[in-house]
Design a protein around this nucleic acid. Structure first.
Length: 389
DNA sequence: TTTCATGATTGGCT
DNA sequence: AGCCAATCATGAAA
């Protein structure tokens, strides 16, 4: 992401503005410590001189800031200040006052609770395997996703392909995420160091309390966290898109295998009078075809409606399967007992035998749909089928 | 690219 | 809950 650069720039500007605020308007500079009555009462002659010295230093500071001095003189004055023996004392006093005034005002509102949205994003990223341990929830989530996408069908060869495909894409997202995160962290650290150095540098000429530095670091971190949140958000979006692509079954419709279609058609045409397989029959078909019971139900739903809509063409198919069934059953009859089952789905209703299937004619018979019904009645002619619409 | 076939989904009905 | 009908979305053939 080249966004990083932009973020960095704006962040740098924003933070420097805040740094600048305290540099340019330190407050304490223009409002030096005002001694109270009690202060004065407790002062001895020694304290009186000290006060005088502090006053001198302040006066020098004011002079430096107010006047435009030439370089050499300014350097000389600063040096004189820095070397002054009262400087540490003055600084600590100034820091103390600063802490009491400026920091106490803002201090309270900085205690922010963890952002719930950030927590949500974090949780999601961990759950999806983008954040967190490399081989942990990530692959687990991928397995779950691909399994769901496969619809539970056993032995689908492309299952593995899509599995790895999903994993590869997820890994890609993961990698980008971590690279960016690392970049942000590095930039954050660099910037923090930079600002700290700056403050340390400035602390030689103006009072800067440790708390103030802390606060500045906190501000920087907060800014960078905001950027990180954007990264997390877009990563989440990417994962969601990936997931939806892989989980949306419609997008990955695969035709059933030829063998599966054969089995289903065989059943359908041999039960034309009542093409409503029982739950057990569906399970059996599902097992045979390597698909789910729901898919079997879908198939029969589609088949019934499409058969009804297109009788003419369906009849050809019906004949085909009738002939097949006949052949299979005949073979079975010859080889085994006259009543033996061929293992396919023999016709069971009288109308089928007579070539008058009664599907959709309101005559649905209870035929049990067992796979071992009288297989001897074969060779039915289904050319004259005329299911009503 | 277009057209057809087909598995999945959805809403309404019983 | 199961089914029907319409529809969607995709695979595969033309």
């Amino acid at each position: 992401m080249e966004e990083t650069q932009r973020h960095m720039q704006s962040l740098a500007n924003a933070t420097m503005a805040q740094v600048g605020q305290s540099v340019v308007h330190p407050g304490i500079m223009s409002a030096p410590h005002m001694p109270t009555a009690t202060d004065q009462q407790q002062q001895g002659p020694e304290q009186e001189t000290r006060k005088q010295e502090i006053g001198d230093i302040l006066q020098q500071i004011m002079t430096i800031t107010d006047q435009s001095l030439d370089e050499a003189q300014a350097r000389y004055e600063k040096h004189a200040l820095n070397c002054h023996r009262m400087k540490p004392a003055l600084f600590s006093v100034l820091c103390e006052i600063k802490e009491k005034t400026v920091l106490s005002i803002r201090g309270a509102q900085e205690e922010e609770p963890p952002d719930p949205q950030l927590m949500r994003l974090d949780n999601m990223l961990i759950a999806e395997g983008v954040a967190g341990p490399e081989k942990g929830g990530g692959s687990a989530a991928a397995v779950a996703a691909t399994n769901a996408a496969a619809g539970g069908g056993p032995g689908q060869p492309d299952n593995a392909i899509e599995h790895t495909d999903y994993r590869a894409k997820l890994a890609q997202i993961r990698q980008i995420y971590h690279t960016e995160l690392e970049k942000y962290e590095q930039a954050c650290n660099e910037f923090t160091t930079h600002v700290m150095n700056l403050l340390r540098e400035q602390s030689r000429t103006r009072p800067i309390a440790p708390k103030e530095i802390e606060r500045m670091v906190a501000i920087i971190h907060r800014k960078f966290n905001a950027i990180q949140m954007q990264l997390k958000q877009s990563t989440c979006e990417a994962v969601m898109i990936l997931r939806s692509r892989f989980l949306d079954a419609r997008r990955k419709r695969r035709n059933f295998s030829k063998q599966a279609t054969e089995v289903l058609n065989e059943y359908f045409y041999s039960h034309l009078s009542n093409p409503y397989p029982s739950e057990e029959a569906k399970e059996e078909l599902a097992r045979k075809c390597g698909i789910t019971v729901a898919q079997v139900s879908n198939w029969f739903g589609n088949k019934r409606i499409r058969y009804k809509k297109n009788i003419g063409k369906a009849q050809e198919e019906a004949n085909l399967y009738a002939a097949k069934t006949a052949a299979a059953a005949a073979a079975a009859t010859n080889q085994h007992s006259p009543t033996g089952s061929s293992g396919s789905y023999p016709m069971t209703s009288q109308s089928q035998i007579m070539g008058q299937p009664d599907m959709f004619m309101g005559m649905q018979q209870v035929n049990g749909d067992s796979y071992s019904a009288s297989g001897a009645q074969v060779g039915a002619n289904v050319q004259s089928q005329s299911p009503s619409k």
